[in-house]
Amino acid sequence: MLTPEDDAYWREYHVTPRYLAGSLGVDDTSLRPFVDLDWPRHHIDDDLGKDVFVSPDGRLRIGFFGDDYILWNIAAYEDPFGPRRWAATFNQNTPPEIVAAFTTTLARDYEESNNRFLARPPLRWSEQTQPLTEAGWTRDWGTEIGTVEIIAPDKQAGILVDVRCQDPEDEQCLLWSGPPGWGTRAEATFTTRTPGHLIAATAAAMADPAPLVRYERSIPRGLRDLVQLTPVEPPPPAKPTPLDVRRTAVSLAVERAFHGSSTNPRAVAARARTTSPLAASDARPTALAARHVPTPATPRGPGRRL
């Protein structure tokens, strides 16, 4: 059983495909654009990690609910006091790096002050799905009439578009990955009026071949047999300087000299160079004392003074 003290417990892996990497339980990535913009942040419940960001004009609201099935709930308004124009949600199994593709594009639209985040959706569904088809995902022709579904090569992810939806509150587009199930299926939903370029940005992040980094234990058990894990290698050691090389060479030479024959001139020289001066000076007085024993002083007679 792994414990926090085991190296394997904290080992990081590159996870491929990225859409099966799962969530992290916390989120700093997808909310970073709004932190950087210094948008007002409202803590609904600190213990459960509920946060809501609101744009300065009140037309964008981004909610992160740490205790819910729907972790991210994002809505846009033409008028901050009117009905919402569109909404997007991401559940607890969605990798935050994929959510970040949506939020980063949304924040950029807002900052450019061009109201692109309120753009009309495309007339054709191909705009949302283009990043996927360009990555080799293919259409499933067996879906219900009036719907379009594009599937990943491994059949473990896709996008489903219901072209029959007309009501602004209808969830017209669904991006999904993983087998069905509460702990394995990632889902992102978009209502009818969601701008196509925001959905396309999210789809492009799903199709990105670059892996995500995870601890093995953070990947849901139902997904571990479906992903490829490659250990993250530690960074290479720093390249030694010329001085380091010289010092190493000298140390090795001295070590070889000490382990050589006692009659080897190099060994003798190495010993002579590395003999402690203090030890040598301590030995000489002892030898001299053995050869030169001082003569006892002659006793002086009584009454003689120095």
Rank of each mutant, 00 (worst) to 15 (best):
Leu2Asn: 12
Pro4Ser: 11
Asp6Cys: 04
Asp7Tyr: 04
Thr16Glu: 14
Gly22Tyr: 12
Gly25Ala: 08
Leu31Val: 09
Leu31Ser: 08
Arg32Cys: 00
Phe34Pro: 00
Asp36Tyr: 01
Asp36Val: 12
Pro40Ile: 02
Ile44Glu: 13
Gly49Phe: 05
Gly49Tyr: 07
Asp51Met: 12
Gly58Leu: 02
Arg61Ser: 12
Gly63Glu: 13
Gly66Thr: 04
Asp79His: 07
Pro80Ile: 05
Phe81Ala: 11
Ala88His: 03
Ala88Ile: 08
Thr89Gly: 02
Asn93Lys: 08
Thr94Trp: 07
Thr103Val: 06
Thr104Ser: 15
Glu111Lys: 13
Glu112Cys: 00
Asn115Met: 09
Arg116Gln: 13
Leu118Cys: 06
Leu118Asn: 07
Arg120Asp: 15
Arg120Val: 14
Pro122Ile: 01
Thr129Ile: 15
Leu132Lys: 10
Ala135Pro: 13
Gly136Asp: 12
Trp137Lys: 04
Thr143Met: 14
Glu144Ser: 13
Ile145Trp: 10
Val161Phe: 13
Val163Trp: 05
Arg164Cys: 02
Arg164Val: 01
Asp167Ala: 15
Leu174His: 13
Trp176Ala: 04
Gly178Leu: 05
Gly181Val: 02
Trp182Glu: 11
Ala186Trp: 06
Phe190His: 01
Arg193Ala: 07
Gly196Ile: 10
Thr202His: 03
Ala204Thr: 06
Ala204Tyr: 07
Pro209Glu: 10
Leu212Val: 07
Arg221His: 11
Gly222Arg: 09
Leu229Tyr: 12
Leu229Val: 05
Val232Phe: 04
Pro240Lys: 05
Pro240Phe: 06
Thr241Ser: 14
Thr241Phe: 02
Pro242Phe: 06
Leu243Val: 03
Asp244Ile: 02
Thr248Lys: 12
Thr248Met: 02
Ala249His: 06
Val250Ser: 00
Ser251Gly: 02
Val254Thr: 10
Val254Pro: 00
Ala257Val: 01
Phe258Asn: 11
His259Trp: 08
Gly260Ile: 04
Arg271Thr: 05
Arg271Gly: 08
Ala272Pro: 00
Ala272Tyr: 03
Ser276Lys: 01
Pro277Gly: 00
Pro277Gln: 05
Ala287Val: 15
Arg291Met: 11
Thr295Leu: 14
Pro296Phe: 03
Thr298Met: 07
Thr298Ile: 12
Pro299Trp: 01
Pro299Asn: 04
Pro299Ala: 11
